[in-house]
């Protein structure tokens, strides 16, 4: 079974917050508290050149998820097959150990529930053949939900295209 990745393309991203609000809305999280977060660098002049770049961050669904190791109640677990690090709110005791354990700052506090929340790639949607909420509603297709092997290829092609300003394809593809 494929392991997934949410690939973010900063060349397309316009930092419009639709991904965050989409997540918050679908997951019914407290207002302003999405699982995914969009950050910006700039606007600023970098070596005299104006620049503004957006960066999407969410759970990487690690092979060895430290949050799962830290969780004492089994609320966090790595799913068989697709490896999604899923979260069961009913089992969460609100100890926050995962917040300390995760090196990426992914688990967040849900003040409405008194528990944590984190991205599970919208596993309920995936199981119905849909895509995560953030990817589904991205207005400019800057987010792609792909098998993780594809993510590296997309990233390589992106920098090649940005660097050379031309369309690019894998050499074997005609």
């Amino acid at each position: 079974m494929a392991k997934y990745y949410i690939y973010h393309d900063p060349t397309r991203c316009i930092g419009c917050l639709a991904c965050e609000i989409s997540c918050m809305d679908w997951k019914e999280l407290p207002y302003g508290e999405a699982n995914c977060r969009i950050f910006r660098f700039g606007p600023e002049a970098v070596f005299g050149e104006p620049d503004l770049t957006f960066m999407y961050t969410s759970c990487f669904h690690c092979e060895k998820p430290l949050c799962v190791e830290a969780c004492p109640s089994g609320a966090l677990a790595k799913r068989e097959g697709d490896g999604i690090v899923v979260f069961r709110e009913d089992l969460c005791i609100g100890c926050r150990a995962c917040i300390t354990a995760c090196p990426w700052g992914i688990p967040q506090w849900n003040e409405n529930a008194g528990k944590i929340h984190k991205c599970d790639y919208c596993a309920d949607r995936i199981d119905q053949g849909l895509k995560p909420a953030c990817v589904t509603r991205c207005p400019v297709d800057a987010l792609k939900f792909v098998p993780v092997e594809e993510a590296s290829q997309l990233k390589r092609m992106r920098w090649l295209r940005d660097t050379f300003g031309r369309q690019v394809a894998p050499a074997a593809k005609y």
């Binding site: 639709a18 989409s22 991205c138 207005p139």
Partner: peptide, 8 residues
Amino acid sequence: TALCAKGI
């Protein structure tokens, strides 16, 4: 299926 923040 795109929608902006306001629409959502």
